[in-house]
Design a protein around this nucleic acid. Structure first.
Lengths: 160, 160
DNA sequence: TAACGTATTGAAACTCATTTTCAATAAGAT
DNA sequence: ATCTTATTGAAAATGAGTTTCAATACGTTA
């Protein structure tokens, strides 16, 4: 398990008007809107947590039963290329897909006891990053902050 | 490639007296010191940057030509269990191994163009962390901050 | 120094996630 | 309605890492 709560906790579930936007984006980029592709778009556009390819495959089949896992992968790669979806590597070595607008890049609270990961909206990091750019000459495009510790539930458990 | 400069930049190459310590640790834990195991220990103990299993395999063969990749994996897992080595996941999905004493957990500036990683002393993050603890109830024990972007040299190159 | 029990080895087989191949299909432009 | 060609899915390939198992070699004890 672990990261499959990614996105789910901190971002309740915003727009779903994104779907049509995605379809337009796909067409505009010169791609066809096929049935399996539509199925994958719908699943990912409507999910408000990060999903594995296998999970997306299962859900897409509810919409278009014939959808193959290969096409799920291909469509996900397309969506990542178009910038609509982010591919996230999880600690165990797999990858997971999340709507780009849900992806606060790289802010995770990870519980070392129960391995649950929660995304959090990050405040105050901008200054740290700017300071670092000034000091090193780097241009920072992205960042990734992970906090490791104990979640409230596991703290309680350990106190008993 | 990518992370293979990890550790390399900020830690020129400290002790190599670590080797005997490792051998003792392995024996103390009830394991035998076989030739291939020695070869892997030597390679990893003397490397001052993170290496992939394949790279370690290649280098270990210089010392004991018969060494199999399987044994490299097994030995690396052993070293990780003993806490002598850290296994780091890299962006591309693979993993990389680094002497634990070289692993300043988690402050890296990583250049997306030349893949060099530089460690930096982190200032101002404490407040961000505390704010987060207050807001979520987590107890934070550790953190990992990675900044991705372009180093000064690569910025110049791209401007031409 | 030899002999022995057993941890360790390496090759091959196996996972599991992802990608490639390729003939058949179906978008969507005309 | 037709036609071009992007897209599909099944099967095969890949690649990192693990498991299996008979053969080997540590290192303890005699």
């Amino acid at each position: 398990m672990s990261f499959n709560t990614l996105g789910g906790t901190a971002f309740p579930s915003p727009a779903s008007g994104g779907l049509e936007g995605w379809q337009r984006a796909v067409r505009r980029a010169g791609h066809r809107l096929t049935r399996p592709r539509r199925a994958v778009l719908e699943v990912v556009a409507q999910a408000d947590a990060a999903l594995t390819a296998a999970e997306i495959h299962r859900l897409a089949r509810d919409r278009h039963p014939h959808t193959g896992l290969v096409t799920v992968y291909r469509t996900l790669n397309l969506l990542v290329e178009l910038g609509l979806v982010r591919r996230l590597r999880i600690e165990e070595g797999g990858q997971v897909y999340l709507r780009a607008d849900l992806h606060q890049p790289g802010h995770h609270l990870i519980c070392r006891s129960c391995h649950r990961a929660v995304e959090f909206p990050c405040r105050g990091l901008e200054e740290v990053v700017e300071e670092m750019e000034r000091r090193t000459g780097f241009t920072v495009q992205d960042h990734w902050l992970e906090l490791f510790g104990l979640c409230p539930a596991c703290q309680e458990e350990q106190e008993q």
